[in-house]
């Protein structure tokens, strides 16, 4: 099998990505002290989702790799969310 040409991410890019992740962490902690009520869990999950996406896209190289992995990952996440959704057919209406 041929060894495909790989994209090399520079150190600077890594550090920028890390900086964004740290800022998001700080935001997430700060938001907790605000009185957002039911929204606060949603906000926390949204921020976590964005952080996870950043890790997947840059640190795990989904941006540069074969698109197949992105398709797989999205498929797996959708599958999991659907399982969660169907489970709550039970718990939401019990």
């Amino acid at each position: 099998m041929s060894q495909e040409k790989h994209h090399i991410m520079s150190y600077t890019t890594h550090l920028i990505v890390l900086g964004v992740l740290l800022i998001l962490t700080a935001v997430s902690v700060a938001v907790t002290s605000l009185e957002l009520g039911a929204l606060s869990t949603l906000v926390a999950m949204l921020i976590a989702g964005v952080k996870a996406a950043i890790v997947l896209v840059w640190f795990m190289h989904l941006k540069f790799d074969n698109k197949l992995y992105t398709i797989f990952t999205v498929f797996v996440l959708v599958l999991f969310l659907l399982v969660l959704y169907v489970t709550f057919f039970d718990y939401s209406y019990r």
Partner: peptide
Amino acid sequence: AFVGYFVWGHHMFTSGMSGRALYAF
């Protein structure tokens, strides 16, 4: 393979799930 993921509840129709879950499954 795909739809097979979302039918598991039909093993539990008498377990005490909510009515909506029964219809869905």
